[in-house]
Design a protein around this nucleic acid. Structure first.
Length: 295
DNA sequence: GGTAGACCTGGACGC
DNA sequence: GCGTCCAGGTCTACC
């Protein structure tokens, strides 16, 4: 069956998919034939479905092989609306970006949305697994976590949904270290899964929490394994752009963009985008960096 | 509040 | 094939 979802214009599915690396992390994927976004998802009913998302004339279409109940359809629509930011409006950002040659492209390309997971739990785990490792390491750790603990897809048992907090909470640190090879991140993932599974931490409520960004920042930093970089990355995914996820790449880019290749620190990255105010994070994310790292 | 050192893994490199 | 070095953020202890 096919579900059709409306979007807030301008919208580009490929812009969302290419907004960062999440599409390369299981259980996301791309369909070689159609070029669409794929996702293996476990619904509240317990059913595991494969979703194929494509751009449609009036928005996006979501193809599911199974016949879903009304409740399941509603859930797929809600998840997809969040993941693709279908209702997000960037007109205020575009109005400012028009005047800057380094960002003048964003409106035309419909950039601004960042692909996110259906749950903040999954986004947080994945963000922790991006820290202090290479991108190849992140892909490997997420793949191992998903294939080890995620429910398999009936259509293709080689593919799995992202594990639930309960399932991860039921494992132990040694398994996460030796089998999934999370290294020192294992206790962070386990502690987070257990806190969510035991309802000690309601991460999902933060998606709609009407609280100042400073308070949200404090709550995210209270999660073990989430530091300044991870916190800013999660805030971006939550639609708050007041902070910049400063990692080694950001330091390199800002160094070459404004400081002639001289080493810079976090404060200089933040200073470079300070005048973008509440859009700071987005301005940094979609900036047209001239430095490519080539000699 | 700022800083040093430890935490793990995988890739690059030299032997 | 083996050993060493390095890159990548966060935490903890200490000042």
């Amino acid at each position: 069956m096919i579900l059709t979802l409306s979007v807030c214009s301008p919208f580009s599915l490929s812009a969302v998919v290419r907004s960062h690396g999440w599409v390369r992390l299981a259980p996301f994927g791309t369909d070689a034939r159609s070029g669409g976004l794929t996702r293996v998802e476990r619904l509240d009913s317990g059913r595991v479905v494969e979703l194929l998302v494509r751009e449609a004339a009036s928005g996006v279409s979501v193809e599911v092989q199974d016949r879903l109940t009304a409740a399941e359809q509603e859930q797929v629509i809600a998840k997809m609306t969040w993941m693709l930011g279908l209702k997000q409006d960037f007109s205020a950002f575009y109005a400012l970006a028009r005047d800057d040659p380094k960002l003048a492209h964003v409106e035309e390309r419909a950039q601004g949305r960042v692909l996110r997971c259906p749950t903040l739990f999954e986004d947080t785990i994945k963000t922790i697994l991006t820290t202090n490792t290479s991108w190849a390491g992140t892909i490997r750790m997420v793949e191992a976590l998903v294939s080890e603990f995620g429910d398999p897809s009936p259509a293709d048992p080689a593919r799995h949904a992202f594990p639930t907090p309960d399932r991860l909470a039921s494992t132990d640190e040694e398994t996460l270290r030796s089998s999934v090879r999370l290294g020192y991140r294992a206790p962070y993932v386990l502690e987070l899964a257990r806190a969510v599974a035991l309802d000690e931490l309601d991460l999902e409520s933060l998606k709609s929490a009407n609280i100042p960004t400073a308070e949200l920042r404090k709550r995210l930093l209270a999660i073990k394994g989430v530091g300044e970089y991870a916190m800013a990355n999660l805030l971006m995914l939550l639609g708050r752009y007041d902070f910049i996820p400063v990692d080694s790449w950001a330091l390199k880019m800002v160094s070459h963009e404004w400081h002639g290749g001289q080493p810079v620190d976090r404060s200089e990255v933040e200073a470079a985008f300070e005048h973008w105010g509440m859009w700071k994070g987005l301005a940094y994310w979609f900036w047209d960096w001239s430095y490519t790292g080539e000699a």
